[in-house]
Amino acid sequence: MPPTPTMSNTILLHKASDGELINNLKGTGIDKKKAEEQLFTTYSYFIKEGERKYKLSHEDIFDAYADAALAVIEKIKDDSFKGLSSIKTYLYQVFHNKCVDLLRKKTTNKQSVHQTASITESMFELSDSAKSIINKLMEKTDFDLLKQKLNELGDNCRQLLLLWADGYSDKEIVAELTYKTADVVKTTRLRCMDKLRQLYNTKLY
């Protein structure tokens, strides 16, 4: 069972019901950003509770909680969260699972094992044979280098790609950045991806 919230947390909960929070998380701009921060803050008392319960370091527990909050936000945004439980219960379950994973890794000394990037949700749509090929190719990806090249892309491209990864449509990006139309956003975004590939390949070969 999730721990009992403090008075201030309860007040926050009353301030924005799950429904309102979900609506804002599915939105864009400042409302969405505030909703994400609100979800994180409202249940951040789980961190202290986690420290006591799982006997892990504050940094580990904080990471587990932040990852859990981001995962829940993602689930809400892509409609995977069906509202069968409250956000609090759902988040607590995800957080608990992450802490247990962390404990397992600690006890079996597996934390040093290289972690490959997880399969993106959209990849599940691929047929098994195609998915297997893509997985094998992705395993060869030098993610550190790719990350380095992403940071070399320049602020405009980076910002554009981050908004895209955050689920903003090209039309919504027009409102956030200084592009004239959604078509311009799309062309620029694809050019940025192409540039990233060129940067990555140049260094690689």
Partner: peptide, 18 residues
Amino acid sequence: AEEVAFYCSARQIIKDEL
């Protein structure tokens, strides 16, 4: 296939950065 793999890897790394 390599282009698709790159697209998926790039998307993943951008998401991680985000």
